[in-house]
Design a protein around this nucleic acid. Sequence first.
DNA 1: CCGGATCCTTGTCGATACTG
DNA 2: CAGTATCGACAAGGATCCGG
Lengths: 120, 120
Amino acid sequence: MMHHDGKMEWRSPCPISSALDVLGDKWSLLIIRDLILHGPRTYSQFLDAPEHISTNILASRLDLLTCLKLIERTNPDAASRNNAYQLTESGAALRPTLEAMGKWAGAHLSDFHADMVRMP
Amino acid sequence: MMHHDGKMEWRSPCPISSALDVLGDKWSLLIIRDLILHGPRTYSQFLDAPEHISTNILASRLDLLTCLKLIERTNPDAASRNNAYQLTESGAALRPTLEAMGKWAGAHLSDFHADMVRMP
DNA sequence: CCGGATCCTTGTCGATACTG
DNA sequence: CAGTATCGACAAGGATCCGG
């Protein structure tokens, strides 16, 4: 198993910049979204999301989010098979950010994306 | 001048996913942050931000954000020299998202990033 | 000079095949 | 089922060049 060496690179002391150092990509916040919407989730349940993340990207994001303690395994000691991931308190605290983001998209992106819906 | 062909790819109808289709990278929200914090800003002022975006990335992001009407030129008809970018109403509406994100980072990232400060 | 555009290198993403 | 290995495509970074 490959796991992160814990050495994060921070571009500046700005909190927003730091948040984006962790979450500034197209997938990390989608993983958090799935966990907020559906509760604990297994590897293959993440793969079933409509955005279709690929397996290696999912594994690397789960690894990073675990290292930074935004998520954790539901049963750390059990075999990885059928084991799930869940939010920590830190990950769950991203809910207001995601709500603000979803609200913004609903209000300001519908001109460009007619098929967008209220919530998945 | 090269400009975007307006064809965005949307991964799903989910608003959060759609927001991340636009803003899910390490730089776009930092541009919005600069505009919220400092008001209208020129090309070289963006380059002076402590995170040091490179010129080509900045140009392509400004172009995309302009196409999606999150930002606009302060004086569209004037020469590009010394012209600045400012937020539209749509871009300004991202303030709650950035505030939530900054608040989250301040509360949950300081264990990993000791040098982080309240606000830049 | 300022606002980019271009070139080139490096790194990350994404698809698919594969393994315990 | 939960990942890992591999490889090609593409995006980011960095330096420099150019038009006004």
